[in-house]
Design a protein around this nucleic acid. Structure first.
Lengths: 228, 228
DNA sequence: CAAATAAATGACTGGTAGGTTATTAAAGTG
DNA sequence: CACTTTAATAACCTACCAGTCATTTATTTG
């Protein structure tokens, strides 16, 4: 997967530039599979095609390696999503769909291991939990809220508690990522995340649609109290 | 929380009957906070008001303790939910709401730590993952599917992929439980799970409602394709 | 109340894995 | 092609913790 594909027969090579990312990749995989405490640095090193000693040339200790793994990751994707929302002229329901499907693409990448990792180790690394809460989670929720508020203002969506709906909006996708890194290996058929998200989005659109803008003009049986 | 509230001044007491459940309670808390590998048996013992040696009088080793913690738990609740569905005459949407709210009650109990625990350790305990997959997760999904299929047959719900909708249906609640045992401690205000579930259920009902049975007789803008 | 029982303790051990460092050898330099 | 530099190694050290066991003591019993 990484490391010694240098065709030469020499026992090892000096590859200072390539090591950090290779180590981070190996560490993400190991931490994702076993968790922080259960992961041995020897395994990370082996996976990166080096030895344990080399690891310490690039990271001060296990904890720093872990934090580097976690930090490298999702923040750029949040920023990307924020940019997309800021400059979109689409209907809010379409924007919501784009937002979810964009994140769903992460599921196929190694980064999809990070949510599980954070969740698992939040108790052992409080400062890291705070970092993620501020830089990813709260920003993510705020972004969904922005779209939802926009939709409500435009009369596309009916009024609802935007924070709670935001949490409902990304829950299935997030759970699918957690699933992939816990139960997926133990089950025969893979869960198709894209299909899941499409179904969910379709459900959401239906559920959010305001009486006003839908083809149905009469109020339905659903009460309009904002669930507070 | 457990242990030495025996008013007497004696250094310790013989309480063979009470120990196992106290140990399991302490272990659930510790494992939930730190994970399996990072939890020290001395901490579990201290939390249970005993010493490490005593722990080994009741559980063969750390792994057995862990498995006992995980096994004790959610299966009875699944069975209870199955019974409720089997003998209910309510409309399917009401049944769905009851199902979710019933599970939401677990959030306030120590058992709410179990999903995180399983998710975290599925990679390290494959047999345990299988057990949970079969005895809890698959049964839970099947139960939701049952309700959904019933609703579709009766014309209450429009046709949709029941497995995917089932996953969407419990995702917010499950995520809230995970939240409680990871980020809740790092955030000022608590997440009100009941309100979250009520909002979600309201959204779901709206999203599932078939054009036929809603107060609105015209077909809405939402297409009826079963999202497959 | 004394002897018997077994619940509980706490000091001990051994293996494991995080972290260090003296040594090796790959690549760069004149 | 010597010589220098430093990436990489592998043997080593050590702290920690799961698991053990001889001893202590609360409780039961006759």
């Amino acid at each position: 997967m990484a490391g010694r594909d240098q065709s030469s027969s020499a026992r090892w090579h000096r590859r200072k530039a390539a090591r950090p990312s290779e180590i981070l990749g190996a560490a993400l995989a190991c931490f994702g599979e076993r968790g922080f405490a259960a992961t041995r640095l020897e395994d990370v090193a082996a996976r990166a095609g080096i030895t344990k000693g080399t690891l310490y040339l690039y990271f001060r200790n296990k904890e720093e390696l872990f934090k580097a793994v976690v930090r490298q990751s999702l923040v750029p994707n949040i920023a990307r999503a924020e940019a997309m929302v800021a400059q979109s002229a689409e209907p809010s329901s379409v924007l919501l769909e784009q937002l979810i499907l964009q994140w769903a693409e992460l599921d196929a990448t190694p980064l999809s291991a990070i949510p599980k990792l954070i969740l698992t180790e939040a108790g052992n690394f409080p400062d890291l939990a705070r970092f993620y809460l501020d830089e990813v989670i709260h920003r993510g929720i705020a972004l969904f809220q922005l779209v939802l508020r926009r939709g409500i203002e435009r009369g596309e969506f009916r009024p609802l508690d935007t924070e709670l709906v935001a949490r409902c909006a990304f829950a299935p996708l997030l759970l699918a990522m957690l699933w992939r890194h816990s139960f997926a290996a133990h089950e025969g058929h893979a869960l198709d995340v894209t299909t899941l998200c499409l179904t969910h989005v379709e459900l959401l659109k239906h559920g959010l649609t305001s009486a006003r803008s839908s083809a149905c003009s009469k109020e339905s049986e659903v009460r309009d109290e904002p669930a507070g």
